[in-house]
Design a protein around this nucleic acid. Sequence first.
DNA 1: GTGGTCTAGACCACC
DNA 2: GTGGTCTAGACCACA
Lengths: 128, 128, 128, 128
Amino acid sequence: MTDLLVLSNQSPTPMYAQIVEQVLAKIMSGEWPPGHPLPSIRDLAARSRVSVITIKRAYLELEHAGVIVTQQGKGSFVADRPDASRAVLMDEFRAQLSALAATARTLRLDTDEVLRLVDAALSEPEDT
Amino acid sequence: MTDLLVLSNQSPTPMYAQIVEQVLAKIMSGEWPPGHPLPSIRDLAARSRVSVITIKRAYLELEHAGVIVTQQGKGSFVADRPDASRAVLMDEFRAQLSALAATARTLRLDTDEVLRLVDAALSEPEDT
Amino acid sequence: MTDLLVLSNQSPTPMYAQIVEQVLAKIMSGEWPPGHPLPSIRDLAARSRVSVITIKRAYLELEHAGVIVTQQGKGSFVADRPDASRAVLMDEFRAQLSALAATARTLRLDTDEVLRLVDAALSEPEDT
Amino acid sequence: MTDLLVLSNQSPTPMYAQIVEQVLAKIMSGEWPPGHPLPSIRDLAARSRVSVITIKRAYLELEHAGVIVTQQGKGSFVADRPDASRAVLMDEFRAQLSALAATARTLRLDTDEVLRLVDAALSEPEDT
DNA sequence: GTGGTCTAGACCACC
DNA sequence: GTGGTCTAGACCACA
């Protein structure tokens, strides 16, 4: 598996968000342990045909969340706080959860029905 | 009950989308049955302190979705197709579902754990 | 055949236009010869559940075109100028014709194809 | 060739609809192939002396019809579905066709006469 | 009264 | 730079 990210400018999700998601996924999977270097901004920009600015913005967001650290002139690295990634994703998960619940309530879906659908969604292969 | 819509310009969801959601909720709840007149765009604009054009935009979306019909000089009315509202919301639900599943997978959450959290979210009171 | 007009507030064509069209049709068909009285505004309004103002507006437009004449206190009558109705409709026909031709050109439809479709449309039963 | 759109606020057709028509014409003519970028809404607004929101409205309609796709921060592009444009125009053509047929019937025009007039209209140069 | 459209200028998000 | 949204006030068409 290559060390790079797969970005699509066809996706409705903005590119910076795609970068954030995939970096978090790499970290959560253990593929990028604490201290592991992230792809250099310039390299990633060149290979992904994405603007340097966009990548910088994504890295900045990850830095603000405490997920990575950037050292001037050296690059960015996975921070020594594995919990940070989890915390970011859990926040997102909780937000998605309440949005889903709100829609389900409006639809007046039965609890069992919702649980069945969630179960099915979890079993499906990645739909990206 | 004031019977009006509650809008927030602080929310990341655009106001016209908030209007769409709340109209759909009124229809799904049966509070606005087929044929029921929607508030006039100007009245709603004045009361909600929102621009006329914003309300119009929301009503346009609902028209495109087949949820309401609008007649010049008369007003807008809930369409005689209750399924349309449900279809729109089900599309949204499915999108939320796959997003949730993706996050859960990244988090490596156990299926039972996810189901438990979903169940809890459904039992909670409205979180708005 | 009753002497009244058939109006639908479901139609996308505005009500006043429906009235104009149907009066012209009655005249062109000979059902309402010159001098024939039109339905009284109040009567038509009551039976069609349409506002008096709307009907007045339609009659006004017909009067401006010289198709009918209105006598204070007596009512409206088909004018003694059968050509007037034809002229109004021919104007509309010409406008429709050039709009149709423009769309056909944009679609790059073959002349024979267009003629075939027009022929078919003329043979179809009324689609109202 | 100025390559721009020609709009008139005197026309009964709303300006956003005029924009839609002209974009469809560009696409149908092959001048704007799939993937081709549309003018930026702000640029077009400035050059056509039309409000940004009006252009946006036109582009929204084209998006709903599947004719173009819009990406945040990048621009709008002709969709990879050439059929979509044709479908939109064919719908319009069919509507015009039945309107024309209705008028012709009211006028009691002979089929051959109508066909002759249509043929003539198709041969005429653009009448704008 | 209703909806339909348009403008001019503003702020924000994304690339 | 791009698009996305919103406002305030205006004018017109329809019932």
